[in-house]
Design a protein around this nucleic acid. Structure first.
Lengths: 142, 142
DNA sequence: CTAGAACTTGACGTTGACGTCAAGGTCAAG
DNA sequence: CTTGACCTTGACGTCAACGTCAAGTTCTAG
């Protein structure tokens, strides 16, 4: 496979694939003319890399994790790195869940015309004069 | 409260607070000499903003959400925005969970010296020659 | 009154994962 | 052989959420 096909099947840009290679996340053979040639497994590889990027893992860290994926074992340092990333992701999930709960609360309040039945959010609420200005500005923008 | 105290209590930098104000996420009174003066509720406000940033909500979107938080109700567009962000966060959580599961699987494999008992991950694995190079490079770095 | 901590605006720097344009070489079809 | 899709390297642009420095003003403690 050449780069365009991998990009299509993995759903990323060719620029991204060259960037991955530059960062040591992906390798390629070269044809005599210099074009990159990938095995079919490259598509799955790219999807895995994308998954890590989505999880907020930086490329340098991914480059350290991938050998463990390939060999199926790792040094103690790599193992610690794996665990640290896992914990970091767990924390990130909790942060996201908290934010979603906050949004759900806001949605719930906004869904009922009488907001005073839920003082939990209104207690630390903002000053009224601020609200009015901000609401007006937002109304112009939305 | 002045800006330094809010920053300390909220656990952010003063630069961040000025940035929030610049982006319309935070307002302040001014003393006659021009210094910013915040109510105590500003700390909670900043924490909420931080929570949204953690969830990956950009400042422009937060600026559109906050009026709903303040007033307790929103326009249909704002309501749709709330729901869309909630869904986006839900998807992000799923992505994170998937990445964490992938890491857990890697950790599990790396934890047992015999990786062949789990062909699920090794099937789409990378070419061996790539693995060796990458592992050596990673060993140098880790 | 004076030192120093805290504050102001303004402006440029940083980081990461690419986008995008430039200026070409390569490959398949007709 | 030519056209057009696809590929190459190189280099600069982007965007967001601040960090950081500059140069000056203000508050506070002694």
């Amino acid at each position: 496979m050449r780069i365009g096909e991998v990009a299509r099947q993995a759903g990323v840009s060719t620029r991204a694939l060259r960037y991955y290679e530059e960062q040591g996340l992906l390798t390629s053979e070269r044809t005599p003319s210099g074009q990159r040639e990938y095995p079919a497994a490259a598509v799955e590889r790219v999807r895995l890399v994308q998954q890590f990027f989505t999880a907020g893992v930086p490329s340098r860290t991914i480059a350290q994790l991938l050998p463990c994926v390939d060999t199926g074992h790792g040094s103690p340092e790599a193992f610690a790195l794996l665990a640290a990333e896992r914990d970091r992701i767990t924390d990130a999930i909790e942060g996201l869940a908290a934010a979603r709960d906050a949004l759900d609360l806001i949605i719930d309040i906004a869904h009922h015309p009488t907001p005073e039945h839920c003082p939990a959010l209104r207690h630390p609420a903002w000053e009224p004069h601020v609200t009015i200005e901000a609401a007006a500005t937002a109304h112009d923008r939305v």
